[in-house]
Structure formats: structure tokens, C-alpha cells
């Protein structure tokens, strides 16, 4: 039996090491390239080490408003996650645990809107933002994004799994509907909230088109827009881009994982769900 478990452990380690090896190649290449001068980046196939590692890319990176871009991205992601989660989970709770008129129709209309590509919405959105003086502001960046149909959909899918008995028990105890939402449904949904937080942050973090349209001045750029402004067409500063992307990815990955662990362990400690 013991031997069996060890075998399982080892085979899992081997399996995931292999998978991870495959997945990390592009990232590894990015890290290595960030220590190369741009002439060396494409000269040979995936050379695994720089001939002479240089720090110039990192030094140059901090001559750009990199830190400001980073902050802007954090504000964008933070605002989007915070407001988006709140809006989506609240609405999802209504859609999953109540019966009201036109429920399915409203839900379908909302999800249907997600089917339309962003490209046809951009011009009217831009005109709206301009009319309301929200161009080049954080509000203009975040507000049109937060009513996210996919976030609502995912939250609804999760909240449907919450047992009605728990909610009804609370009702019997005299809790208001609002209390039921924030005292019972929300805590139970912690893993879902963590997942959504991660997904929303990724979306905000990677979004290029929207911040590009909304933000006008260099100081208001998010990281994606700022970094991509470093690659011109004829003389792409790839090394600089690699360095910037590397610094952009690392802390976020660590932060997300810690957060997810925290949320999940919080859940098991509370052991609400039977």
C-alpha cells in the first residue's frame, strides 16, 4: 500500500514536471532574452543562455515611466476586480437563488451581449466616454468593463450549487435577503470569488485594445500599452519588452497563487459547505 502511494507520488511528479517543462519554454526564453542585446535575440534557435548577460534592458526600462504604468495597471485591475466581483456576484445570487419575472430572458440577453465582438462596440463607447469627459481617466477605463456577462455567468454557475436549505434556515432565523447574500452566500462562494478575481485581473492585465483607446497620455498608460509603445515597427526594442514583461508577470503570478490558497484554506477552515 505504502509503496503504491509512493509510486503514485513519483509518477505525478514526473508527469507534472514534464508538462511544466513544456509550458515554461516561452517564458524561459523571455527571461533569458531580457538579458541579451536585441541583435542577439533572434540570431540562433532558442539559445538557452545569453553569451554575455547584460542588464542594459532593465536599466533602460526604468528610464521609461514603467513604475507609473505598473501602478496604473494595478489600479485598473484592482478597480475592475473589486467592483466587478461585487456586481457580478450580487447579480448572480439573484439569478441563481430567486425566481422573478423575465429571469431567464434577462439572463440570456446579458450573456448574448457577450457574443458580440468588442470591435464593433469601441467607436460608440469612445464617443460616450468623450461626451462624459471620461477619456483618459481611471473611471472611464474601469466603468464600462465591470458589468461582465461572463463573470455573471460563472458566478451563477457556482452559486447554483449552494444548497437552498442553508439559505432557508437563515431566513427562518430572521435574516434579511441582503444578510443571506453577504453572510452566507458570499463566504460559501470564496473559491469562486478567488477564481473570478484571478480571471478579472488577467483580463485587465492583458487588455491592450481598451486602455489604448481610453488612455491618451503616457502617464495614464497601463503596462500593456506602455510596454507595447516600446516596440516601434522598424526598430523593435525586444529586449526591453522582454525585461518589462518579465517584471510584470512574476509578482502577479505569486500574488494570485497566494490569494487562491488563502481563499481555499479559509473555506475549509470554516467548513461551511457540506
Amino acid at each position: 500500500m505504502k509503496k503504491n502511494i509512493n509510486l503514485k507520488k513519483i509518477s505525478l511528479i514526473v508527469f507534472f514536471s514534464f508538462v511544466c517543462f513544456l509550458f515554461i519554454i516561452p517564458f524561459y526564453w523571455m527571461v533569458v532574452s531580457s538579458f541579451k542585446p536585441s541583435g542577439e535575440i533572434f540570431t540562433s534557435q532558442l539559445n538557452l543562455f545569453p553569451k554575455e548577460p547584460i542588464l542594459a534592458n532593465y536599466i533602460n526600462l526604468f528610464k521609461t515611466p514603467f513604475v507609473k504604468w505598473y501602478l496604473n495597471s494595478l489600479i485598473f485591475a484592482g478597480g475592475y476586480v473589486f467592483l466587478g466581483l461585487f456586481l457580478c456576484s450580487l447579480a448572480a445570487f439573484a439569478f441563481s437563488k430567486y425566481d422573478f419575472k423575465y429571469k431567464n430572458i434577462i439572463f440570456i440577453v446579458i450573456v448574448a451581449a457577450q457574443m458580440l465582438p468588442i470591435h464593433i462596440q469601441i467607436i460608440p463607447l469612445f464617443i460616450m466616454l468623450n461626451k462624459t469627459s471620461l477619456v483618459n481617466t481611471y473611471t472611464g477605463l474601469v466603468l464600462p468593463m465591470i458589468a461582465n456577462p461572463m463573470g455573471l455567468f460563472f458566478a451563477r454557475q457556482y452559486m447554483i450549487g449552494i444548497e437552498d436549505d442553508i439559505l432557508n434556515a437563515a431566513r427562518v432565523d430572521g435574516a434579511s435577503e441582503w444578510q443571506i447574500f453577504y453572510k452566507i452566500a458570499l463566504p460559501i462562494s470564496r473559491p469562486m470569488l478567488a477564481a473570478l478575481a484571478i480571471l478579472f485581473s488577467i483580463e485587465a492585465w492583458n487588455n491592450l485594445l481598451w486602455p489604448l483607446i481610453v488612455m491618451r497620455t503616457e502617464k495614464m498608460f497601463t503596462l500593456t500599452v506602455g510596454l507595447s509603445s516600446l516596440i516601434g515597427q522598424y526598430r523593435p526594442q525586444y529586449g526591453l519588452l522582454m525585461a518589462g514583461s518579465f517584471l510584470a508577470v512574476l509578482p502577479i503570478v505569486l500574488f494570485f497563487l497566494k490569494m487562491q490558497e488563502h481563499f481555499i484554506s479559509g473555506l475549509t477552515a470554516g467548513s461551511i459547505k457540506g
Binding site: A91, A94, Y98, F100, L125, M128, P144, L152, W178
Partner: peptide, 21 residues
């Protein structure tokens, strides 16, 4: 209560999605 719960979402959704569409 459910109507109040979906109100903020619906409001932003109407302005920023339905309008452009």
C-alpha cells in the same frame, strides 16, 4: 430583493453594452 440585486449590474450593462450594440 432580486431586482435590487441585479439593478447595478443591469444599469451599467444597459449603458455600456446595450447602447453600443
Amino acid at each position: 430583493a432580486p431586482w435590487l440585486f441585479i439593478a447595478p449590474f443591469l444599469l451599467l450593462f444597459t449603458v455600456f453594452k446595450v447602447g453600443p450594440i
